[in-house]
Computed example of a mutant assay.
Amino acid sequence: MSTTAEFVRAHTRLAPVPFVPELVLHQADEPIELWELTEAAGAEQPPPFWAFAWAGGQALARHVLDDPALVAGRDVLDLATGSGLVAVAAAKAGARSVTANDIDPLSLAAAEVNACANGVKVALAEGDLLESGYADAGVILAGDVFYSREMAARVLPFLRAAAGRGALVLVGDPGRAYLPTQGMVRRSTYDVPVNEALESVPMRRTSVWQGHFTYR
């Protein structure tokens, strides 16, 4: 077992995902403690987004599992995969291939152990695809990526280019401030249970969006 996988297992517990109970995920019991631990590691270590089932990812995973034709037989990229939840759901739904991408090695370790726990395989792509681009996928899935103005400004051109070349682009989002809804189509909306210590509420109204992107 790799050092990163050992760290993931040591700081999480395998449990069903609240809104997608047919899937299990290594999740942190004490989110604030883990967040402080990664902050203490230095500025070069990203926050532990990989240790939680975020609302956008849960909604997107639910949507894909409920409508597997969206991904079945297609090559899928899960952008900024975090825990790998959405990648696992796509693999379960019958995608031909699934690539989980993130800049954080711990995130990719989490995606790998979570895929294993659910009996599926995903490929791992470490690095910033927003810089390099990624033309191999016919479906781009992005859960909860519009959490800051800076991230939104970088993600949008990537998603816009993917949609422009004909890829299906689906975004799961719980109403983050920088989600550009103009020109997008809301496919579904869910009330998703979330970690109250992180979100300050027990439930987030979360939508899955599809479409071409505009940003002002």
Rank of each mutant, 00 (worst) to 15 (best):
V201Y: 01
G73M: 07
A125N: 07
G57H: 00
P193S: 09
A142K: 03
Q210I: 00
Y147F: 15
P46A: 13
S132I: 01
A69Q: 11
V64H: 09
G119H: 07
L124I: 03
A109I: 05
G183D: 04
A135P: 00
A109F: 07
A135I: 03
V64F: 07
R187G: 01
P16R: 14
P193F: 10
L60V: 06
R62C: 05
T12W: 11
Q210M: 09
A152M: 03
E33W: 06
L37E: 14
C116A: 12
V71I: 08
E33R: 14
T206D: 00
G164K: 12
G127L: 03
S207F: 02
G211N: 05
R216T: 01
V88W: 03
N101T: 01
V208W: 06
A100C: 07
A53F: 02
W54S: 13
H11S: 09
A162Q: 10
V145R: 00
V86L: 09
E39A: 08
V169K: 08
L34I: 03
F146H: 04
A111W: 01
V192D: 13
T99D: 04
R149S: 13
W54C: 10
L79P: 04
P21R: 13
G164F: 01
A161W: 01
L14M: 07
S83Q: 06
A135D: 15
E112H: 12
P47Y: 08
R205Y: 00
D67N: 15
V120E: 14
V64Q: 09
R160N: 10
W35I: 10
R149M: 09
V145M: 08
A153N: 10
D104W: 05
L65V: 08
G42N: 08
N118C: 09
W209T: 04
P48E: 14
A137I: 00
A135N: 13
A109L: 07
Q182W: 00
G138N: 04
P193T: 09
K92T: 12
P157I: 09
W54V: 06
Y215G: 02
A100W: 00
P202W: 06
A80Y: 01
D78P: 02
L124N: 08
I32E: 15
A41N: 04
H26S: 12
A135E: 15
E6R: 15
E150G: 11
A51Q: 02
E36K: 11
S97Y: 04
G82K: 03
G172H: 05
H212G: 12
R96T: 04
A110R: 06
F52H: 15
P46V: 10
V17I: 11
M184C: 08
V71E: 12
A55I: 02
A123G: 14
L159C: 05
G119V: 07
P180C: 06
H63M: 06
M151N: 10
